[in-house]
Structure formats: C-alpha cells, structure tokens
Computed example of a mutant assay.
Amino acid sequence: MSNVVAAQERAKEAIKRQQDELTAQVHAMEIQLGPLEEQIATLGEGIWTMNLGLGPARP
C-alpha cells in the first residue's frame, strides 16, 4: 500500500508543477495580449471612422 500512496503523491506533485507552469504561461500570454487588444480597438475605431466617411457599401 505504501508504494501506491507514494506513487499518488508523486503524481500529485507532477500535476501541481504542470499547473503552476501552465498558469505562468497563461499569465505571460495575457501580458502580451494586452497591447494587441488595444491595437485591435484602435484599428476598429479607424475602420469605423473610414466607413462613416465613405458611406454605405455599394455592391
């Protein structure tokens, strides 16, 4: 029984390490995503402004 418990503990520790690593990766990606979201918003405003000036699209 001791071997099983030890194996479970090792598995739990490995899972915890992987979770921590993935959490750190997600955090790093969120930091990189922030400026991109701002740029997308700015570009969207520019497109909206251009469409406003050009009027409705014609086929």
Rank of each mutant, 00 (worst) to 15 (best):
G44H: 03
A28P: 00
E37G: 05
A11E: 12
E21K: 11
G44A: 07
A24T: 14
G44Y: 02
E13P: 06
Q25N: 13
T42R: 14
Q32E: 12
E37F: 06
G34Q: 14
G34A: 15
V26L: 10
I40N: 05
Q39K: 14
T23K: 13
E21T: 12
G46Y: 13
T23H: 10
I31E: 11
K12S: 14
T42Q: 12
K12P: 00
K16P: 05
D20K: 02
L22G: 07
E30Y: 01
E45C: 10
Q39G: 04
A14C: 03
G44T: 05
E37S: 07
G44D: 00
Q32Y: 09
G44P: 01
E38I: 02
E38R: 13
M29T: 14
G44K: 12
T23D: 04
A14K: 02
P35D: 03
I40R: 14
V26Q: 03
E37Q: 13
I31R: 09
I15L: 06
E38D: 13
E37A: 04
M29C: 06
Q25M: 10
D20M: 07
Q39A: 03
E30W: 01
E21F: 09
G46F: 07
E45S: 11
A28D: 11
L22I: 03
E38W: 08
L43P: 02
A41Y: 08
A28L: 04
G34H: 10
Q39L: 03
R17D: 12
Q19M: 15
I40G: 01
E13Q: 15
A24P: 01
Q39D: 09
P35I: 05
A14H: 04
G34S: 13
T42K: 12
A11C: 06
T42C: 07
T23C: 08
Q32P: 00
E21Y: 09
D20Q: 12
G44C: 05
G34R: 15
L43K: 13
G46P: 00
Q39R: 14
H27Q: 10
K12T: 01
E37D: 11
T23I: 05
I31F: 04
E38S: 10
E45F: 07
T42H: 10
G46V: 08
T42N: 09
Q39W: 00
P35S: 06
D20P: 04
A24Q: 10
L33K: 12
L43I: 13
E38G: 05
Q32D: 13
E21M: 02
